[in-house]
Amino acid sequence: MNKALKNPMLYIVLILPCLILFGMFFLYPIFSAIRYSFTSWNGVSATPKFIGLDNFTKALTEERFWLAARNNGFFILFSVGIQVPLIIFFSLLIANVKKLKGLYKTAVFLPSIMSTAVIGILWGFIYEPNIGLLNSILKVFGIEPLYWLADEKYAMISILLTNAWQWTGFYIVMVLAAILSIPRELDEAAAIDGASGMQRAFSITLPLIKPIISVVIMLSIAGAMKAADIVIVMTKGGPAGSTDVMATYMIKYAITNFKYGYGNAIAVLIFIFTLILTALYQLLVARRSERIEY
């Protein structure tokens, strides 16, 4: 057995299927998208017409594209500035619960395993202007019904809240696992020394879970850049394109109009923007979150 494990061919044989799948479903689509992004192609013709950087120039000078990119920015800001602090707060609360901890973990995680289509339809009923739960509550306080998904002022924030509701539980479970892996002796020693719960949270727990918080932020950024399904289900980019993100812009103005060359150019831009943002985060923030061992 040991002799077999020392044979390099064994490792090549074992990893070869993974490399083939990686090439087929990751590398090939990327290089294919890059290739077609420099062409004018309707997705049917056998000979795409090479047009150089025209697709990229069109996208980068198109106002609707930058409005969609701005909405992706709203997703990032909401996720990092509001959702992540709430994730940490609720994780600390659940970690200190003495009874039914498993029930709380299951309850917060449940939305994450539901289909985005189900989530979108469910919250669509909540936002319904006439009989929706949210407007029914507002009516009790004498506030006129609001058109949450049909008014440009509220549509984007409504989608952001729905998206946060779906994915907050997933990240809570990640952070909670990191908190529960901290040796209890550290917290007990601090409590004996007279540290309050707040002091222990800020001086012990949060510093020790910095690496997982960094991962949560990076995943939130990546998720915000590829957001599309929740927008499609709830508003289809409306009203008047006010909730379009880059992915829905690509589908609406490129793919459905058989402008596959332009669509691939937008896909490449999404990939580049995501790569730049995650790389900057890794260089400026994540590298400072050193791995902590205890």
Rank of each mutant, 00 (worst) to 15 (best):
Gly263Gln: 03
Ala267Gln: 05
Val215Gln: 09
Met246His: 01
Ala228Pro: 00
Arg184Gly: 15
Lys236Arg: 15
Ser196Thr: 15
Lys252Pro: 00
Glu185Arg: 10
Gly261Val: 06
Lys210Phe: 07
Tyr249Ala: 03
Tyr260Ile: 11
Ile230Thr: 02
Ile192Glu: 04
Val231Pro: 07
Gln199Asn: 02
Asp244Ile: 01
Gly241Asn: 13
Ala254Trp: 05
Pro207Trp: 14
Ile192Asp: 05
Ala189Asp: 01
Thr205Met: 00
Ile270Lys: 02
Ala190Trp: 13
Leu219Ile: 10
Tyr249Lys: 04
Ala189Phe: 12
Ala254Leu: 07
Met234Ser: 09
Ile221Lys: 07
Ile232Thr: 13
Thr205Glu: 04
Ile217Cys: 05
Ala228Asn: 09
Val245Arg: 02
Gly238Leu: 10
Val216Asn: 03
Gly194Cys: 13
Leu219Gln: 04
Val215Cys: 02
Phe258Gly: 01
Ile230Lys: 05
Lys252Trp: 02
Asp229Trp: 03
Met218Val: 15
Gln199Ser: 12
Tyr260Cys: 06
Leu206Met: 14
Asn257Val: 00
Leu219His: 08
Val233Ile: 15
Pro239Thr: 13
Ile212Glu: 03
Gln199Lys: 15
Gly238Thr: 11
Met198Cys: 02
Ile192Leu: 15
Ile192His: 07
Leu208Cys: 04
Ala227Asn: 10
Thr243Phe: 13
Ala195Val: 11
Ala222Met: 14
Lys236Ser: 15
Val233Trp: 09
Ser220Tyr: 01
Val245Lys: 11
Gly263Leu: 14
Asn257Gly: 00
Leu186Thr: 06
Ala222Lys: 06
Met198Val: 13
Met234Cys: 13
Lys236Thr: 07
Tyr249Val: 12
Ala224Arg: 03
Ile212Leu: 06
Ser214Lys: 09
Ala240Gln: 11
Ile266Lys: 00
Thr248His: 04
Ile213Pro: 01
Ala254Gln: 08
Ile192Met: 14
Ile217Tyr: 03
Gln199Tyr: 10
Met246Thr: 14
Met250Glu: 04
Tyr262Phe: 15
Tyr262Met: 06
Val216Ala: 05
Met225Arg: 02
Arg184Thr: 12
Gly197Gln: 05
Gly263Thr: 08
Ile255Ser: 03
Phe271Ser: 10
Gly241Phe: 07
Phe258Arg: 08
Met198Gly: 00
Met246Pro: 06
Thr235His: 03
Ile192Ala: 08
Gly241Met: 10
Arg184His: 10
Ile209Met: 12
Ala267Arg: 05
Ile266Asp: 01
Lys252Val: 04
Asp193Met: 08
Ala195Asn: 09
Phe271Glu: 00
Asp244Trp: 00
Ala267His: 03
Phe271Trp: 06
Thr248Gln: 06
Ile221Cys: 07
Ile192Cys: 09
Ala267Asp: 02
Tyr253Ser: 00
Met234His: 08
Met250Leu: 15
Met225Glu: 01
Lys210Arg: 15
Lys210Ile: 13
Ser220His: 04
Ile213Val: 15
Asp229Ile: 01
Gly237Trp: 09
Ile251Gln: 14
Ser196Ala: 05
Met198Asp: 02
Gln199Thr: 12
Pro183Leu: 12
Ala195His: 07
Ala195Gly: 02
Ala267Tyr: 02
Ala240Arg: 09
Ala240Thr: 12
Val233Gln: 07
Met234Trp: 03
Ala195Met: 11
Ile221Thr: 03
Pro211Gly: 07
Gly261Asp: 02
Ile255Met: 12
Thr205Lys: 09
Ile192Val: 15
